[in-house]
Structures are given as C-alpha cells and as structure tokens.
Design a protein around this nucleic acid. Structure first.
Length: 660
RNA sequence: GCCGGCGUAGCUCAAGGGCAGAGCAACGGUUUCGUAAACCGUAGGUUAAGGGUUCGAUUCCCUUCGCCGGCUCCA
C-alpha cells in the first residue's frame, strides 16, 4: 500500500498511553477499543485533548484526532452508563412480559438503577424473578445499543405509536435547542440522553431488589407509578460484595439492634414516632448528654430549660404559625387561651434574652438546651428513631453583635468537628443551604438580610477551609444554614449538625442590646445543633457501631461471671471493686455453664467479660475476655482497672488491649 | 398522606376454611461446670382490632390501627 493511499484512508489519529493508531473515516470508538486491545470492562471513553474533557460512548463516530483514556466501572460516569443500560434492559424485559406497561423514567442512581412503570398489573416479588430471567436473555442476545438523533416530530410519532404518553410529556418539555436522542436495542426504544454501553451483553452481574410506588416526577398530585429497583456491577464479585454490604446494613439496623439490645422501643399503644428509652438506651443517652453539657459549659454556654407549650401568639410572632403550621400539633385550649406544643426552642430562648436589658458587654450570650420538641410528620415518613414525631434537639441559640457573628460561627464549627470526632465520625460534608430565589414567598425576611446571613455562613466555612456544596432551596424558613452530613462506618451519610445565621427573628421579637454608644442595636442570632437530635443521633450511632458501643458509652461495661457457684462471692467482690471505681459492672450469678454466660454477654455486646474460676479465686486475679479480641488471659484486678479506666476516660473507640 | 407488602406466644419463625405449632426467653427442678447454647418438666394465644361471608374464619372479603419498602418532606 502506498503512503498516499494510506493517508487518504486513515484520516484520524487516536493516541492513548503514548501509543497511537490511525482510523478510517466512519470508524467509531469500538474500533479504537479493538485497536488498542481494550477489554469489555471499558465502558466509556474520555478525551484528554481539548480544553475540556469530554466523555464519549464507544459507539461515537470519530470526528477528529483524539487523545483518549478508557473509562471502566471505577469511573462514576462509566458506572452510570452501565447501570443506565441495565435500566433500559429492565424496561425492555418488562415490556416483553407485560406489553401494556407505559414507561416512566429509568435512571442510574447511587448504588444501582430503577425504572418506573405504569400498569394495572401489580408487580410481585415472583415477577422480579421472571423479569430477571428475561433480562439475562436480553443480555445474552447481545443487542447493539444505538443512538439516533431525531426531530421532535419524528420522536413524537415514535412514542405516540407505542402510546408512551409519559415519554411524550418529557419530550414536550425538552428545551427547543436540545437535540432529541433516542436509544434502541432490538425492539426496544427509549427517549434518553445517554450515555450507554454499546451492547446489552455488557450487563453481566445484576439483581433486581425491590418494588415501590413512586409519584410521576415526584409530584404527589400526579399518578403513582410502580418503581423497580435493581443494581448492576461489572462482575459477580462486585455484585456479591454489594449484596453482602446490604446484608450488613440490615444487621446493623438500629431498629433491630434497639430491640435486641433492649435500648428503646416505639409503642403501638403510645403512638407512632414517639420513642421510649429503655434503661440501657437511657444510659447511653445520659452519658452523651452529660458529655454535651460539659463541653458546652467549657465553651461559655449557659444551659437553660424551657416549657413544652406556649401561647399561640408567640408562634405568630416567630412566624411558625404561618410558615410551619403543617408540622405543628393542633392548638390546645387552656383557660380560654390557645397553646401550642413547641416544634422548636428558639422563641423560648428569645423570651429569656428579652427578659432584661442586655449590654454589648454581655454578648455573645449562648443559651443551650436539650430541648424536646414535637413535630407532626406524615405517617409514611416515620422511621425508627431516625424520623420521629417527638425528639430532643441539642439546641442552642447564640445572641451576638454583628461584628461577633463570624467568630461565633467559626467556634460553632469547631465545636461540631470536635464532638463528631469523639464519636468516630471523622468524615463529614458541609452543605450551605440557601433559599430558593424562585420561591421567596416560602421564607420570611428581606432580601438584604438573607444575603447578609448567607454571606456570614459562607465566610465562616471559608475561614475554616471547609469544603462545601451550595444547596439551593434547602434553607429553613427563617434563615440559611450550614447543614452537615456525617459519614458512618458503612459509608452512609446522615443528616447531623445544622448551623443557621438569623437576622429575622431578632427583628420579629424586637430584641436588642445597648451598644457602646448608648443606643439600641439589633443582635444577630445563631441557631445550631451539634448532634442534631438525641433520637436521630443515637439511632445513627447504633448503626455506626453496629450496637457495640465503645467502652465509655456501653450500658454494661464489665460483666463478671463465676465459672460455678463456688466462686459467686469472689465474683461479687470483684464486681464491687469495679463499681467502686465507677464502672457499670454486673455479675452473672446464673446456674448456666460459663460458655452460656459468655455467649449471652457476647450477644449483648458487653465490652469486657471477667471470668473467675477456682484458679482466679485462689490467686486473687481475673481472667479477661474482650467482646471482639477474645481471651486476653489472666491479670491482676488493679492492672485491669488502670488500663480500662484509661480507655473509658479517653472515650477511646478501641480497646486498650488492642495493641499490635 | 400516597402505592405495594406484612401483622400468629416476650423474641425468632412454622402451619392454615374443621381442637394453633417449634426453638429461644420465662417459671420449677436436676446439674457446679473454664472462654459463643447442660438436661428434664411447667406455663404461655380472642392468630393486631372491629365488622362481613360461612354450619364453622386464625385462614376468604371489607374497615381501622401499626410496621416494612419506596415517593414526598425534615433534627
């Protein structure tokens, strides 16, 4: 072949990893994949040339020269492409089995994908099995997944033919200039922006997980569709690991552990969303509350207690009556006066502030309270201790001068980080929740006041070098907030601390302080919680620790168990020593064999088991077993106490004996 | 609130239009034991509540309550 001929036929050069290949007009990235010898674990292509990186499908035709990088399952977009294709395969399978369905939407999500269907047939778990089988068949057929750009009219015709009214609705709402793309695989066609993987055969490891109702476009005024959730991975091993993780999450469920460990309950006779703290759960809560109080005192907070109800009027002044009514319990009549159960503590703290004239020298004033509030939540959203109707916020309101605001916000951020770390939440994410500029009617206060508050929060985040994401429309009705999500041991995010700057309530309650100039000035308020609410925080902690609380929080820290009755009095003597040293220690004097006692203690996740038999009784020593480290051998009582005391006092997350 | 599923002994779970069952826990004994379950026995139920169909309902139907998975909303 002459060079001239070659250069005419091979017009594009693609470079990867210092290698380059030439391609003829009309080649696509599947050809590139072949040329470079990439395997089927390449799902998308990323271009490295050009000012902006671009991700492309393997079916994309070459249009110029490229420098590329293949993207595998580890890359978010590539992962989503595979799962998105999986959702199309799901829809195709469902349409084959249930021809009357109409399609909603079917995106990739965090851990998998879903597709929404409208059909009179109610999907059952048995259906999932047959749908999965059909999906496997489609994958085996290895249908090409192709993309077409259509005119609006053409697309409309296609979906009208198949009576896909939901697709038409989406189509009609696509912006004018948006190219309309449609994906096909075999007989299946879907309106979709992509990207996708090139063949259905790329789907090798997947599982359908559950069926749930979901409003069309998340709007409760629109029809409810049936959603099928599934997940997909590159290989069986990835899928297996994911399913194992789901199982682990199930085992850690605070509702399950709460019952097993006898920490709390929610009583059907008492009402939904109302938590009963059993003795062991109450100990955990009490310890956390004491710790909380101690840390707040250290930082200049004054702790207060306020009532559970107050006259309707103050809720009008605060704005709750107008902006928060649907979350509040109905008024109750007392002496011809209407009272409301409090959904928040702020107005009460303001009343205390307002009780006397404040000087600029008094500020900042920080009122902290473990304040129990009640909020009406729709029945369907309640969830164990994580979403309840009555809960205790670790609340505080800081009243400060405008010039103190940023420093106060920074101190709150520091306190938050400090306390979260104690519980082993080393990773957390900050969200700056601002109001939705499209919906100003949903918030109280003037524009300039909002801007001021949002700016203050942002500059505090910047001052502490915290990464944050702006969350539009997530502000509270009276002010913007920093909402902090904490990452637990399973890598899940939980709503935790929230910090709000508020210029509005001081205005509404007309509170002030006397400045250096002898004039009245308006203070700024910070609303904040560090843990969020005791219920939610401890519910999350149970899952974070899988029920195995670190020593300082364990309801029972040490259980002493005699091998037989003959050592009972020695066991009690040992227990007494522990109790004298301030440990929560128990004695198991049951008639059971030692193996049984150990099993019970293990199941209850008691950190330290002290086994005393005839040998220990004679030598005045103890045999120590740790719930996760196992048998630690025989040691002296004082030696043990000294070590374990250090573990408890330091609030260690690990055993002192866990040294390698 | 909405869609779907579920509700049987304190707990975990069977059975099912014709007398409601097991294991663990509880209780009474026997056993005195060395690092995750000794043995024997006893008791425990208006099958979530209410209504209907039926000779007969715990089972089938309806309503209510609660729980679970989601949707929507929050600490």
């Amino acid at each position: 072949m002459h060079d001239k001929e070659k250069s005419e036929r091979f017009i594009f050069i693609v470079k990867w990893n210092n290698k380059s290949e030439s391609f003829a007009q009309g080649s696509c990235f599947l050809d590139v994949k072949k040329a470079f010898g990439w395997k089927n674990n390449v799902l998308l292509i990323e271009t490295l040339d050009g000012s902006q990186r671009e991700t492309l499908e393997l079916r994309e035709t070459l249009e110029r020269d490229y420098v590329v990088e293949p993207l595998g399952f580890g890359h978010e977009q590539a992962r989503e492409a595979l799962r998105h294709t999986a959702s199309h395969i799901l829809a195709q399978a469902v349409k084959r089995l249930f021809p009357d369905v109409r399609l909603g939407i079917g995106p990739a999500i965090e851990d998998g994908f879903y597709y929404d269907f409208d059909t009179v047939h109610g999907f059952t778990p048995e259906d999932l099995v047959s749908i999965e089988q059909e999906m496997k068949r489609i994958a085996k057929q290895n249908l090409p997944v192709t993309r077409e750009i259509m005119s609006r009219g053409e697309a409309r015709k296609v979906f009208e033919q198949s009576n896909e009214t939901f697709k038409i609705e989406i189509l009609d709402e696509l912006p004018e200039n948006e190219p309309i793309s449609v994906y096909r695989q075999g007989e299946f066609i879907d309106l979709c922006a992509g990207p996708h993987v090139p063949y259905t055969g790329y789907l090798k490891a997947f599982k359908l997980l559950n069926i749930a109702g979901a409003y069309w476009r998340g709007d409760e005024n629109r029809p409810m569709l049936q959603r099928i959730y599934g997940t997909a991975f590159m290989d069986q091993e990835g899928l297996r690991a994911h399913l194992a993780r789901l199982e682990e999450i199930k085992q850690r469920d605070h509702r399950k552990l709460g019952k097993q460990l006898d920490l709390f309950s929610i009583e059907e006779d008492g009402g939904p969303g109302l938590v009963y703290w059993h003795p062991k759960g109450a100990i955990v809560r009490e310890i956390i509350e004491n710790y909380w109080k101690e840390e707040h005192r250290k930082r200049g907070y004054d702790l207060v207690y306020t009532p559970h109800i107050a006259k309707l009027d103050i809720w009008k002044v605060s704005g709750h009556w107008d902006w928060y009514k649907e979350n509040m319990y109905s008024p109750m009549e007392v002496d011809d006066m209407k009272y409301l159960l409090k959904p928040m503590n702020c107005p009460f703290h303001i009343l205390i502030y307002k009780g006397k004239t404040r000087s600029y020298r008094d500020l900042p004033i920080r009122y902290g309270e473990l304040g129990t509030v009640y909020r009406y939540e729709r029945s369907g959203v309640l969830h164990g201790m994580l979403r309840v109707r009555g809960f205790t916020q670790d609340d505080a309101h800081l009243f400060c001068r405008p010039d103190q605001l940023e420093q106060q916000l920074i101190e709150v951020l520091d306190l938050t980080g400090f306390m979260l770390k104690t519980f082993g939440y080393d990773e957390y994410y900050c969200m700056l929740s601002v109001r939705d500029p499209e919906n100003k009617a949903g918030y109280i206060g003037d524009d300039d006041v909002w801007e001021q508050a949002e700016a203050a929060l942002e500059s505090a985040l910047k001052a502490r070098n915290l990464q944050y994401q702006v969350d539009v429309g997530e502000a509270k009705f009276y002010g913007p907030a920093i909402d902090i999500n904490i990452k637990d041991a399973m890598g899940r995010l939980w709503q935790g601390p929230t910090i709000q700057a508020d210029f509005t309530l001081p205005e509404r309650f007309d509170i002030h302080y006397i400045g250096e100039d002898g004039q009245r000035h308006r203070p700024v308020m910070i609303h904040r919680t560090v843990l969020g609410a005791m219920e939610r925080f401890i519910g999350g902690l149970i899952e974070h620790y899988a029920g195995a609380f670190p020593l300082w929080l364990s309801p029972v820290q040490i259980r002493v168990m005699p091998v037989s009755d003959k050592q009972s009095s020695y066991a009690e003597e040992v227990q007494k020593r522990f109790k004298e040293q301030g440990f929560r220690a128990e004695c198991d004097l049951g008639q059971d064999k030692i193996g049984y006692k150990i099993r019970q203690a293990q199941l209850e996740k008691v950190p330290y088991m002290i086994i005393v038999g005839e040998r220990e009784k004679q030598s005045h020593e103890i045999s120590v077993r740790h719930r996760s480290l196992g048998d630690l051998g025989v040691m002296g009582i004082d030696e043990f106490i000294e070590k374990v005391r250090h573990e408890a006092v330091s609030k260690s997350l690990e055993s002192v004996f866990d040294r390698v």
